[in-house]
Amino acid sequence: MREALWLLAALLAAYAAFEFLRALRLPREAAAGASGATPSGTGAQGPVAAVAEDQKRDDDDFLAYAPLPSPAAASAPASLAPDAPAPGASAALAEAEAAARFELELENSGLRQALQAQRDLVALQQTEIDRLVEDLTALREELDNQVSSVASSPEYSEAMVLAAQGLNAEMIAERCGITLAEAELVLALGRGGAGRP
């Protein structure tokens, strides 16, 4: 069972690593596709502008893991604010918001996994508790059957009467001709029966 749990944990870790690497790769591919679509514009600006744009892209490369905002979400703030900041500042702000959103989604995913693990643990513990309650019920029934069989047995009826009178186990064993262990058992059953309603 433990080996199966370790295997499951390893599979989940591998899947999480795969999803993380895929999340890292997708924004870079989209950025490469966008830069490939505008090489003529950078050529018209000159080599200095192209080098500056490459430098800016390298500086922003640490945010490449973040999901890119949708075009509708990016255009909505620009249309609502007539005196919006420069396009470079709004792009940086959008990237920062996207990075924060990605962090929150990642944390939310981790919390969901932890919650599911707790739910699985609670379900397992509830199953164990139910099994223990069934075992306890069976043991109580067996004890009640043993008590009733000892109480109804003619060879122990005198011992039960002596136990009810308050004699100790040695005296019960001597008078009834039973072993000391049997006398102690009868004495314990007599005390248990007296404590019951």
Rank of each mutant, 00 (worst) to 15 (best):
R2C: 01
A4R: 12
L5K: 11
W6C: 11
L7D: 07
L7W: 08
L8E: 13
A9D: 15
A10L: 15
A14R: 09
Y15T: 07
A17C: 14
F18Q: 12
R22G: 12
A23T: 04
A23S: 09
R28I: 00
A30Q: 08
A31H: 03
G41K: 15
T42Q: 14
Q45P: 02
V48D: 14
V48C: 09
V48E: 13
A49Q: 08
A50M: 05
V51L: 13
V51F: 13
V51M: 13
A52F: 08
A52I: 03
K56D: 10
K56V: 13
D59M: 15
D60H: 05
A64D: 13
A66I: 05
L68C: 03
S70E: 09
S70K: 10
A74I: 09
A76M: 04
P77M: 04
S79A: 13
L80E: 06
A84W: 08
P87Q: 05
S90C: 09
A98G: 09
A98H: 01
A98R: 05
A98C: 06
A99S: 11
R101K: 15
L104E: 12
E105R: 12
L106G: 15
N108V: 03
S109N: 07
G110L: 02
R112F: 06
A114D: 05
L115V: 04
L115R: 07
A117C: 06
T127N: 13
T127K: 10
L132Y: 03
T137M: 10
R140V: 00
E141V: 11
L143I: 04
L143D: 08
D144I: 07
S148N: 09
S152K: 15
E155V: 09
M160E: 00
L162K: 05
Q165S: 06
G166T: 08
N168F: 02
N168L: 06
E170T: 07
E170D: 15
I178D: 04
E182C: 03
L187R: 10
A188L: 11
G192H: 07
G193W: 00
